[in-house]
Nucleic acid binder design. Structure first.
Lengths: 216, 216
DNA sequence: AATAAAATTACAGTAGCTGCACGCATACCG
DNA sequence: CGGTATGCGTGCAGCTACTGTAATTTTATT
């Protein structure tokens, strides 16, 4: 219209964001009401007032509208901070890193909660979610290896260092899944940080050599 | 034909088993050659000389032909042995239990290996595999809880006992995934038992309070 | 040999998804 | 302000996975 048409990030970008958000909200609402399997892409398109073709241009897949934007890699600054961390609690540090990346991803907590509830009750979505996470695991493994090297550990002194790195990532994934389930099922009264520490403590209790049984 | 037509398990059952095995073999061979995504159900049906409808009668899903029969719960005897185990190494015991159930499932090691190779390189199949495993997790959690109770641990003395049980199952799943990947990628020279013990040792090294760094 | 039960099949239809080409809105430039 | 390039939404035709149904064939029973 005026000589300065691009206010926010360009009118185009705003419209895109709006329709995308609308579609995601419509998808979640429909699925929470009728169940994921009974929601058709055409229904979401009707609610979002776009053609089916446009829907697939946005999400590529039906599941995409329900899962939201994929988890991003953390910013370089955070990565560096992790790599040069103290080293005492690598599992806690990694879990913290992942959590931070997840949190500032979806600003609306209502959407986030609805999404988690739906994913928990829908095996198909849960599986796809795990697949997405698995796609990040390789780069996270490299990150953990970097940290090992920064701590002076080498493949020479520890032949299975790469295995260890992969296992660290795997364990972090377990802790995240466990914690998310407990958090969004409402079974924990406390802060997310407390929950994560609780989960990690649980891991230690289980793997702790032979101390699980109570004294009495 | 004769007065005793049912030799093995009935001619019907044998034919069923034969066509099913044929379809599974055809599916694996085609996918290893052309890639999972480029194999169509019709191709498999042609190779197996059945109609598409019959294919879906057998497997219900395209993925089903590649994943094989779902993992079964172990026999009651094994379950009892687990529940009344010594208690020192619950993670090892559970991993052993799962492994045993997997092993006597697919007698042909060639098929098993081909299947794993395909699953590893196909995210969609990997995700579905994990979903299948997740379906067993609930009953495994109950099993672990039984063992806790058999050891005299109660929810009264340990309020988060159920959490601990769920975490044990989650960790066992991590160990299994890690080990399977390493095993079938050929990166381990040794027996499966050794590999499993190695993996669990890795978990302990990581979670061990503050011992991961070498002295030097 | 007659009959019951079970397996296989063809057929029609739905839903997810893709390539392609066309039209229109937006952004850019003189 | 007008012209133009670019991006985006859309319709359409088509492929593949999957399902219900009813008919046909194959195996089991008596």
């Amino acid at each position: 219209m005026t000589s300065k048409p691009t206010l926010d990030d360009g009118l185009r970008a705003r419209k895109r964001a709006a329709t995308q958000a609308g579609l995601e909200r419509a998808a979640l609402a429909l699925a929470l009401e009728h169940g994921y399997e009974n929601v058709t892409v055409d229904m979401i398109c009707d609610a979002g007032m776009v053609s089916q073709r446009t829907f697939f241009n946005y999400f590529g897949t039906k599941e995409g509208a329900f899962l939201g934007t994929p988890p991003p890699m953390p910013a370089d600054a955070e990565l560096a901070r992790f790599v040069h961390g103290t080293g005492a609690d690598i599992l806690g540090d990694l879990v913290g890193l992942i959590t931070a990346a997840l949190v500032d991803q979806e600003p609306d907590p209502g959407i986030l909660r609805a999404r988690r509830m739906l994913i928990e009750r829908t095996p198909e979505l849960l599986g796809r979610e795990n697949t997405r996470v698995a796609e990040l695991e390789e780069s996270l493994t490299l990150l953990v290896l970097d940290r090992f090297h920064a701590q002076g550990r080498t493949e020479e002194s520890t032949p299975d260092l790469e295995d260890e790195a992969r296992m660290v990532v795997t364990l972090a994934g377990s802790v995240m899944r466990f914690s998310m389930q407990k958090w969004f099922s409402g079974g924990f009264a406390g802060t997310p940080s407390e929950l994560l520490r609780h989960s990690i403590a649980l891991v230690r209790r289980i793997t702790g050599t032979a101390d699980p049984a109570p004294r009495g």
